[in-house]
Design a protein around this nucleic acid. Structure first.
Ligand SMILES: NC(=O)c1ccc[n+]([C@@H]2O[C@H](COP(=O)([O-])OP(=O)(O)OC[C@H]3O[C@@H](n4cnc5c(N)ncnc54)[C@H](O)[C@@H]3O)[C@@H](O)[C@H]2O)c1
Ligand SMILES: NC(=O)c1ccc[n+]([C@@H]2O[C@H](COP(=O)([O-])OP(=O)(O)OC[C@H]3O[C@@H](n4cnc5c(N)ncnc54)[C@H](O)[C@@H]3O)[C@@H](O)[C@H]2O)c1
Lengths: 251, 251
DNA sequence: GTGACTTTGTGCCCGGGTTCACAAATGACT
DNA sequence: AGTCATTTGTGAACCCGGGCACAAAGTCAC
């Protein structure tokens, strides 16, 4: 089985959602939407959701122009139109987009009408916070299973969900239709947990532990490295200092 | 005052660490390191740290080749060399890099020898987890201040730090030399908190609340949007399903 | 010292993402 | 009906990061 290593890249990954398998298979042509575009599409949908909820911010006839929507999400209007064009033409020239129709299109394209059951492994500080976060189920990601190895935690309820033994992962994941696995264990356990999740049929993993994860090629891994985020901010801080020093040195 | 909007981009941001100010200022030439490179540099440093700690995995003469280091971090050797070349030439052709010297160079370049005091605003589920995370101080990011508006939390210790009233942010941040602010409040409060942090002199912000933040141009904002990460995984799941369906439909 | 081997540093190309700018389409107004 | 203002959709140029491949440079063996 060929394996890939989850690249530790948080920003600037080239990934363009290639056909999952190896060869591009000449016969079937799935439209390939850049990952950056997918990310923005979700923000468009969120803004439209909020508009629909509040009722404000869109015209009486229920349309919204690319300029208006772009301003709301803080983005270039041309980029927005190009993003939307990946889904086909759904706007009316001279008018704009029908907000309700656009919302529906985005929901369809992003699969926002479905739910994706999530399992969180490692019910520590971070795992508990994730389990209790209401924003996940609100967006279609209900946490349906919690796993740990700590006997003191197994069997106890956290955020309304009983913590299961990690050894029952395969059983519980299949029973709860878990589609996405979140790894919130200490780093040394992360690889083992990933293996367990993969064996349980989970093919999408979100990892919080630093370090690499090696998984089969058909498993998608995303990593969130908070210490790295701070490091990048710190680097900016240094640069800023350098700039200030240089400014002062060369008047 | 010119303001910028923190782009909601998690992946694929073009950001190339431009000179912070407006004009590139012809006189002073700061070497511009791509953000993606900075991110990888930190992982190189981590791996070197671990090697130095364990003592293993590097040769007896204390050198390591780009191929070896690249394999350890799971990355293309050429990319690694190019990354390192941004810091100047520090390797010896025919031999490799002196591990200790490289580590020192990376520490210097990334400012890893300094500490960057952090303040966390919003001591809820997520904020408490962040405050208790030992990985932050271990990497030079001690959490020195916690802020909240909840009277039940103010004055109480969390992870050894007494929670302060957000109204004392300016005072406490200056006293504790806070350089980085982390926003872990509900979304509606995020913008106000950002304003408070900026007023307190914080110019680097890590935000967990969805939605945009508007800040002055000299303030650096990074956003972590966990729901977006799940959404991107879900999109892959859809694509996978589509591929499978298409495969089945076109035999 | 010389030759063979190893490894770095980097020029070059490629593919993807962002942006501009404009033609096409549509509705409103006369 | 015709004209004009408005807005979409997209071709094309530009920029940036990734990866290949090779010359330069240095080491080691003899
Ligand atoms: N807490 C944070 O704010 C934070 C920030 C950045 C990164 N992280 C990363 O997130 C991960 C979790 O952090 P945390 O602070 O929640 O840690 P934690 O120590 O509070 O919790 C870890 C949990 O994982 C469980 N666990 C250990 N091995 C396991 C295994 N093999 N299978 C299942 N469960 C197992 C432990 O019993 C514990 O409940 C770590 O890798 C950490 O580096 C956390
Ligand atoms: N918990 C998670 O796993 C998770 C996941 C993704 C995103 N987030 C985001 O992180 C943020 C925090 O999430 P949480 O689960 O910790 O929320 P929470 O409700 O548990 O905690 C929020 C805390 O912020 C405090 N607060 C409210 N207004 C404030 C203000 N103006 N100034 C200072 N403090 C204030 C509250 O008193 C509370 O203690 C939210 O924006 C949420 O969307 C959280």
């Amino acid at each position: 089985m060929s394996t890939i290593v989850a690249d530790g890249a948080t920003p600037g990954e080239p990934a363009r959602l290639p056909t999952i398998g190896a060869a591009p298979e000449p016969g079937l042509r799935l439209r390939t939407i850049p990952e950056a575009t997918v990310a923005r599409l979700t923000t468009y949908l969120r803004v439209l959701d909020r508009c629909a909820l509040v009722g404000a911010e869109l015209r009486v006839d229920g349309t919204i122009s690319s300029d208006e929507l772009a301003a709301l999400v803080g983005i270039n209007p041309a980029k927005l139109r190009k993003d939307l064009s990946y889904l086909g033409s759904h706007g009316t020239r001279g008018v704009g987009y029908d907000a309700a129709a656009l919302r529906s299109t985005l929901q369809q394209a992003l699969g926002a009408h479905e739910t994706y059951p999530v399992a969180v492994v490692g019910v520590g500080h971070l795992g508990s916070a994730l389990a209790a976060y209401p924003g996940f189920p609100a967006r279609g990601f209900p946490v349906r299973a919690l796993f740990d190895t700590d006997p003191l935690k197994i069997g106890r309820p956290v955020a309304g969900i009983t913590v299961s033994d990690i050894r029952e992962a395969a059983l519980v994941c299949r029973r709860e239709d878990v589609v996405i696995g979140v790894i919130a264990t200490p780093e040394p356990a992360a690889q083992r947990v990933a293996d367990v999740l993969v064996a349980a049929g989970v093919r999408s993993i979100l990892g919080f532990a630093p370090g690499q994860l090696t998984v089969p090629a058909d498993v998608e891994v995303r990593r969130v490295d908070l210490a790295l985020e701070l490091q990048l901010l710190a680097f900016h801080e240094i640069r800023r200092g350098d700039v200030a020093a240089a400014r002062q040195a060369v008047p």
